[in-house]
Nucleic acid binder design. Sequence first.
DNA 1: ATTATTTTTTAAATATATTAATAAATTAAA
DNA 2: TTTAATTTATTAATATATTTAAAAAATAAT
Lengths: 411, 411
Amino acid sequence: MATIKKIFSDLHNESIDGVAYKNLHLKKQILTYFANTSDATITELSRELNFSAPKIAELLTELQKDGLVKDYGKAEDSGVGRRPNRYGLKPNSIFFVGVDVKKFHINIGLLDLKNTLVKYQEKVAFTLNNTPKSLDALCAIIQGFLKGLPARKDQIAGVGINLSGRINYKTGYSYSFFNFSEEPLSKIMEDKLGIPIYLENDSRAMAYGEFCNGAVGPEKDVLYINMDYGIGMGVMINGQLYYGKSGFAGEFGHIHAFNNEIICHCGKKGCLETEASGQALVRLFSERLCAGATSIVTKITRKTQDFLLDDIIAAANHDDVLAIECIAVIGEKMGEGIATLINLFNPDLVILGGSLSATGAYIRLPVKSAIFKYSLSLVSNETHLKMAELGEKAGVMGACLLVRSRLFAFE
Amino acid sequence: MATIKKIFSDLHNESIDGVAYKNLHLKKQILTYFANTSDATITELSRELNFSAPKIAELLTELQKDGLVKDYGKAEDSGVGRRPNRYGLKPNSIFFVGVDVKKFHINIGLLDLKNTLVKYQEKVAFTLNNTPKSLDALCAIIQGFLKGLPARKDQIAGVGINLSGRINYKTGYSYSFFNFSEEPLSKIMEDKLGIPIYLENDSRAMAYGEFCNGAVGPEKDVLYINMDYGIGMGVMINGQLYYGKSGFAGEFGHIHAFNNEIICHCGKKGCLETEASGQALVRLFSERLCAGATSIVTKITRKTQDFLLDDIIAAANHDDVLAIECIAVIGEKMGEGIATLINLFNPDLVILGGSLSATGAYIRLPVKSAIFKYSLSLVSNETHLKMAELGEKAGVMGACLLVRSRLFAFE
DNA sequence: ATTATTTTTTAAATATATTAATAAATTAAA
DNA sequence: TTTAATTTATTAATATATTTAAAAAATAAT
């Protein structure tokens, strides 16, 4: 069995041309088909990829020799005729590490080729600051995770890392965090950890998780809204993540939506994020409490101020009226923004994700009614609104799957 | 030489498979390369499409037999070595008709395979109403144009028609105009005119014209803003027009942007179009005149009310202060909307088009300054802002080129 | 249980594309 | 002017993929 390094260099060998190039291309098409769809028979692949059965069979045996593909045996009875063999990715050949860096904690996990989180650690203590010390702490956590894995290091294709703010995944530069060096952040971390690093914007990675393994079915044009302290978005167009020119597409939180005087951390005034985000919810909730409103959150947390977003979400899910009211206010404003997105993107599906999505219908209903109110009905009639399915795991899943997509990618 | 019908059915024969399918695919790739890029040599095509030179040569001779491709002879001196032959589309083999339906007139033209408007009629008298009579008038004009063409009818691949409002190009339904029948509009017109009809949203068609033959160079993510009485947008993502689920993507004019009481013709309040469009400009200009402001427009047109948008544009281009001031007001609001687009799409290029773009810097500068004010600088720094280059011809060009793209399209 | 039917898989034959080699065209240098 | 160098175009030879046919595997019907 070839090592991951060998497979990697084979798959990305750019000096290859002619027949070898075409075979390599077809191999990647097969792998991508397995990854995006599922196991398949020779005949299915032949039809789908427009190559003859013998050719597909030849490449499948090569991929099996490489250790990437497995023969899963005879398919289920499908009526009459000989039952075909099903082929698919071999789970234990390659693994991917995903690191979801949140404001106050880290989630980290190891994914195999069958989309199983082999190992997963949630809410590892960490505080995100834009300092070298914070970066060192992050590296140390990843280092520790890499040590205790049920996989050889040469089986790990890379580490995907989600950060909030502006990220250019192609260059590896981060512009909002850990941007105190001349070199791209991905390079710095690769040097420290000795393993390929792939940076991505947090919302886009979460979106990718939902796209591949969550709420998205056959839909091709999908928007994923990450509702957390800030507001982020991941855009899928024609079945692929959309980046824009420099990887900054989807800055939904910083569109100008209000004529208020609240200064956003991006430096501008009136961003959607100033009134429709988790941080706006915390502010609104505190204001209402100060103004004399009552809530069970004070009982649960024994605090009278400095509530966390999670405290309010928990209160709402315990039927706390104040929390529910405040979420409705935020949701209405969020929905107005989403109405704009629907007019512009005419998506098949909009997914509400991020920590605020844990409030379920409390956020969904005001969003839905605002969409009706503010978008063209002909357009929004075509759009489904769903809640995210992966919850807290979305980020880690997405980060891992993005590493996979880079391994299988062509060019 | 094969007839257009033969070529058409060859190019879209779906029963073909195996080798014939692959050859057909490669033929279309070659044609698309010629269409999108320019003429090319065998070696260039071989490199670009990853096929061997003999294979490319074989298909090129076939395409020459079909009458679609022409040998343009030896290339310019490129230093040392044998000079290659350049091949490209043959201009007089196939033609496309484009019809740009405006509110108060029609532009109609005939395009050859070298992007030359062989015949072009501008501002043909017509008034767009949502009535069968208006539709009949439109068909009559097209019928008349088809009669006097310097091309046989069997050489015309189809007629592309631009309409404002919501269009689903796949089904051929129009939802804003001529929507009084059960059957799709494209079907109705095909039956009347006896030639394939392709409907498209007017702004998207204009955008496509600029993409293929106007202000767009190598950029892949581009937004085209159609500033007319209404506001429209065409979106190019990854080098291709973006439609969204039902072809309604890009409804920029109807995003909710103001808390005003002006009812938009879409039925909602506060649309961007109510304050940042040509119709808003006309309203603003009239109000300022009524309030006592002076303008040369009253002298030129000898009217004291009922100004057309073109009157105000002409006045501005004659340095009329009131017109320039009003355009700046509209431009500032338009720019605020475009800032939102930039945050969401992170485009390479934004093109200002439509009749208002004829005011040049008068509209460009306020738009530009609003973009600086309202979008994330990291994102907007990456975006260029250009004026459209095709002017009034954009719609006809786009309509023709869209027919072409459907002829060459695969699937 | 045997035979017919259907489908996948393998194998052989055919068709096809690529590679390598040659010829042709062009420029620069001898 | 001739020769060498360079690149393209064409051809012939080789490698490759596809097609066709045959075999194998599975099920249903007789």
